[in-house]
Design a protein around this nucleic acid. Structure first.
Lengths: 248, 248
DNA sequence: GCCGCGGTTATGTATATACATATTGAAACG
DNA sequence: CGTTTCAATATGTATATACATAACCGCGGC
């Protein structure tokens, strides 16, 4: 297992008052003591209960509303919301970290590198308009001696010109980009595919084996930066995502 | 494509002042105008710029800090953080909604239902201590005439006793549970598997085909409620997750 | 009975103020 | 020269206050 989502559990510190109010209430909601639809006390009632100003109570309740735990209605009060959708935070780490978390030695290999004018397919993947230059990379990531993941990447050279001068022998394109380009948005697609011959050879598995594929497209300030497809060796990989209604 | 993540993009409404400050600053960060490490103006400078009180500025900056876009240091100021990890919000809808979003008719079928004392395997899946009773369900979800997803579910009857009286012919266990049990936490595991014979038959695909599997474990107030494994018919399914540094 | 009108109420936003706290940089001291 | 002390500073939290806004309630007029 890898790609573990770390949760933000704050424990121990002396809580500020509005944080205490917030956690008191969310505990009662999450425990079911206050079921969906239940009206939680008015601000002025909590003000009395905690002997504090309305601003303090308001701060806590506003955060609960933003977190989606309650719904606030003028003149009516605040009500426990019913969970709307199964949402989870998926945290996808650098592959080196994933591998090392498994206690295995990480090794990176650059297989191929081509600079070219973007093809129609490249433009689809990157959501590019013009046929500007792109850098196409193919890499392998190893866990111990076994291939762990196969990486196919396109970099939009119009957005990251300096990538044209980098060979990517020593450093993987992922960390290289992260260190250089402030990204603003990303889109992930996760699916299962049967390994074709090329992938099977690269990952040293049988053709047709089920593989988890994670594709990521990244933008920086409205400009497409990179498209990458990671194909993980069959059975070696799993994504873990956790959800707890956020209190932050 | 399905399981689409809706983003919270607020547009149009008259923004309150602290929201405007917040979006002004986050835009400058996300556009790269203020690179990671850059010190953003002090609260008292923004107070002057926006001609408002420090509380208003503080509200905006506190939210940016909670969203992880900036880091605040006493006496030093607030600094743009470098993106820490690839995190995405994955929103997993009810299967009926997924199917209908594809423009296909949804149909549900209960295949099997067994009430039993929990086996060792059940206890592993549910993270149960005792060998209390569980309800094991097997269902199919159709998109048009084709099987879309196969569902294998365990319900902890100690947590949801009334499930023992429900046949689940008319209503799928997912929506039934959502409507009844306030869940507090969930964990997802996403992986690719080759369809075994049982799954292949249920989904009307070839054995060995690559399938996306989403497993979910749900807790309510510290008690395990249910474990469910959805297996999606090969090639028919994709998870989409988007990330934009949250401003809420 | 129906409609409109204003009052009441709870939340939404903003202000000025106050004091706590962490951290820095410089001055004072050994 | 190194260390301690201290004041300055930016943020963290909380208060009392004020007015805006949305929604509901009941009253009165028709």
């Amino acid at each position: 297992m890898s790609m573990i989502q770390t949760m933000d559990v704050d424990v121990g510190e002396p809580l500020s008052l509005h944080q205490r109010i917030l956690s008191d209430i969310s505990e009662r909601i999450l425990s079911g003591a206050w079921a969906p639809g239940h009206r939680i006390p008015f601000e002025h009632e909590l003000t009395a209960e905690y002997k504090c100003s309305r601003m303090t109570v308001n701060k806590a309740l506003s955060q609960l509303a933003k977190a989606g735990l309650i719904e606030r209605r003028r003149r009516s009060g605040s009500f426990v919301r019913r969970p709307q959708s199964q949402a989870a935070v998926l945290e996808i780490h650098d592959i080196r970290i994933e591998v090392e978390a498994l206690g295995l030695a990480y090794h990176y290999e650059r297989v191929a590198r081509h600079k070219r004018r973007s093809s129609a397919e490249d433009r689809t993947l990157l959501e590019l308009d013009s046929n500007g230059p792109v850098l196409a990379l193919e890499c392998r990531h190893f866990a111990g001696k076994r291939p762990f993941a196969h990486e196919q990447r396109l970099i939009n050279l119009a957005a990251v010109a300096e990538a044209a001068n980098e060979e990517f022998f020593a450093v993987a394109p992922g960390p290289w980009l992260i260190a250089r380009v402030p990204w603003s948005a990303a889109e992930h697609r996760i699916r299962a595919v049967a390994a074709d011959r090329h992938i099977a050879a690269a990952l040293d598995i049988e053709a047709g084996a089920a593989c988890l594929v994670v594709e990521r497209r990244t933008w920086s300030a409205e400009h497409p930066v990179t498209h990458v497809r990671f194909t993980y060796a069959a059975e070696s990989h799993m994504l873990v995502a956790r959800f707890t209604p956020s209190q932050r």
